[in-house]
Every structure is written in C-alpha cells, then in structure tokens.
Design a protein around this nucleic acid. Structure first.
Lengths: 207, 207
DNA sequence: TAGATTAGTGAGCGATAACTAACAAGAGGT
DNA sequence: ACCTCTTGTTAGTTATCGCTCACTAATCTA
C-alpha cells in the first residue's frame, strides 16, 4: 500500500512487474489482473496508463531494447581490442538474459509472433543490431589476423549468437541450475580456440 | 464430415491437428475448441479421448518424441562413417524442425515451462538423447583423427546443437523466408572446417 | 481555499477457457 | 432384429480474459 503515484512512476512499475511476471507466469498467459494484483492496484488502473494490453507489451519491449543497447555500448567502450570487444559483447548478452530471464519466452510468445507485429519489429531490429556489432568486432579482429579468414564475419557472428541462444535454451530447460554467464563464456573460449587456429592446415588423415 | 471413427484414429487425428494449430495459433493460446472445429467434431468430444488438456499435450509430446527418435535411428543406420553420421543427424534434426515448425514455440510455451512438468521432462530427455548421439559420433570421428582433439566431444556437441537451435530461431523470427535445412547445413560446413583444421597451430601474430 | 486535473475504484460487459452431465446414435455380435 | 459398447451430441458449469463505465479521492494550481 504505497498510495497514489505519478503516472510516470506507475508506468515504470507496471512495465517492470510485467517483465518479472512474464517469466513466472509466461508471456501469453500473463493477464492484466496478475500485474495489478502484484503491484497492489485495481486491474482497471492498468488501463489508465496504457490504452491496450498490446501497447503495454510495446512499452515492455522498448524498455528491454533500451537496456540492451545501453549494455552493448558500455561493453564496446570498455574494450579497445577487437577480441576483448567480442567477449564483452557476448558477456553483456549473457548477463542481460540472466537478468531478464523472460526474454527467450517473449521471443516465442504468440503476443510477439502473431498478435503484435510492432513488438516483433522491435525485437527483430534489436537482434539485427547485435549481429551488426558482432560482425564489426569480428572483422576488426580478422584484420589484425587474430582470427582465421576462411569463415566470413557474418557466419562467425551467426555461430556466436547461436552459441548464446543454445546456452540460453539449455539454461531455461534445465531449470536454470547452472550459471548462464559462466557456461556461455566457457563455450565461447572453446569456439574462439577453433577460430584462432591456423587456417588451411588440415590433418593428413583427412583427404 | 467423415462420421464416426475409431478411438485410435480419432486420437491420432486430434494429436496431428494439435501440432498443426500450435504453430498457427501458438501453443498457449491453442484451445480445445480450435482443435475440435478444425477436425469437425464438437469440443467436448476431445475430452472423450483425453481426460485433460494436459494429457493431450503429453500425447503430442510423445508423438513428437517417437518421430524424432525414428528419424535419428534412420540417420545413423544410413551413414557408416562418423562424419556422414554427424551430418545425417544434424540434417535429420533440421528436417524435423521444418516439418514440425511449432517445436521451438512449444519448447518455450508456458504449458511446458510452468503448467506441465511431465511435458518438460519428455523434451529434456529428448534433447539429452540427441546430444548423446552427437557425442558418440564426434568421439568416433576424433578417434579416426577426422576432428581436432582440443575440444571435448561434449563441447563440440553443444556447439552443434546450438547451431541448429540458432538457425531455427532465426528461421522462426524471420518469418521462415529461407530454407532451414539449406542454411543449417551450410553453417554446419563452416563449423566443420573450423573443427577439422590442424590443432595447436596458431598464427604467429597472436601472442 | 476553491476548482480543475488526474490516479484510482467497484461493478459489470461480452467473449472464451476447460470441463461435465445427460442423452442420442452408429456399429458389431448374437 | 435386438442389445450393448462406444463415439458422439447439446446444453450448461465455473472461471477468467481484456476492457468500459460511472464515480471517488488525492494532488496541483490559481
């Protein structure tokens, strides 16, 4: 019972609770009643701040997007060398997912996939932007000859985002009983070793 | 209007329609009314064949599991050499996903994540089993020196399943506007090149 | 301090969810 | 032709969904 609050604060509170409950209840079964009850206001009060539930989801998406972009920028600024930048970007993504565990489910929610094309566009742009930053870092590192040249920066970026997504899936299905960041960074190291080995040299056993 | 059918046939029909509609409508928004209407029977008729909706989901999961396992076995039997076996397993997985496009969404549905622990166990076992088959193939190929030894079979298997999952995610989010199998096998080739390069040889530029 | 603005309420709308109860009708065996 | 088991129906249950309405009460401003 906190009493009346400014619209700005209440909006932020609703968005935050929405994210928290999306993980607990699931994005597509999360109702405005759930959110209202968790905050301690009446259910219609939600609609004083957001015209429709779809608009509320959009606000949630934009909150996520803003936080992710901020994280990426910090990661890039804090790491000068391309390899450090690559690691920092991946680490930022892993941290973001572990702090917003509803993220994978939201990506596959019906709200996003069918009901709310605007929501889908936000996340598509977001993933594309991350991919772009990875490609840039990889290209820089290839230019420094820190990475083999026989895989395109685009493909390497795809392999690395897949790595993150794969770890996230395992983490989610496995009841989150391991550290997402630790396991993700460990696998990143494995993959980076593969990527830094000298190119074009093949064991004589393989044709 | 096909009229009365045997319980066995009807059950199979309901499960199949459930899978088809799970993709169209979304696993968590798919109702028994949707399924009944698509088949052409009344909604309560569903409950003559399955005691609860949860039981119906479980039947769907077991149908998926059976089909996947059959595919894996065929893939393994049709390919003698470890590398061919590895490719066949990945290809089987890609084909299965493209034929059952609801699969990724089901993995992240609340039905699986929250409501139905039994469902979750089925898929967890399924992924573990696939992982195991990959590990076996990778170990065999390493023994033939067809793969570098500086990454453990377990980790390589994780990278490969992540590859499949990453492609599947991109395919789903990108409105499925490319061939899942083609793109997946292309990336598999890229990763296999990284994995077959001679180990322990590093460019002199990198410290 | 009066008046306007705005956050929040309780009651209730139509739609839809999973599921039940009572009853009808097709199919096979005798 | 009758009986029985099984597959199906129609009608109805309770619960919950997003959302609207008429209204109250807290806060801001003149």
């Amino acid at each position: 019972m906190v009493g009346r609050q400014s619209a700005e604060d209440r909006k932020a509170q609703i968005v935050a609770e929405m994210l928290r409950l999306a993980d607990e209840i699931g994005p597509d079964r999360l109702s405005t009643t759930d959110v209202a009850r968790a905050i301690g206001i009446s259910q219609p009060a939600i609609f004083r701040h957001f015209p429709t539930k779809g608009a509320l989801w959009l606000a949630v998406a934009e909150d996520i997007a803003a936080r992710l972009r901020a994280r990426w920028t910090v990661a890039e600024q804090g790491a000068a060398a391309p390899e450090a930048r690559l690691r920092a970007l991946i680490r930022a993504q892993l941290t973001a997912i572990s702090e917003t565990p509803a993220l994978p489910s939201i990506l596959f929610s019906r709200e996003l996939q069918v009901n709310n094309p605007a929501l889908r566009d936000v996340f598509r742009g977001l993933l594309g932007s991350f991919q772009g930053r990875l490609v840039a870092a990889i290209r820089d590192q290839q230019a420094e000859s820190g990475l083999r040249h026989d895989a395109s920066p685009q493909d390497v970026a795809l392999l690395l985002t897949s790595l993150v997504q794969g770890v996230a899936i395992r983490w989610t299905l496995g009841a989150r009983n391991f550290s997402l960041e630790q396991e993700g960074l460990r696998l990143l190291d494995v993959q980076l070793v593969l990527l830094t080995a000298q190119e074009g040299v093949i064991n004589e056993e393989t044709r």
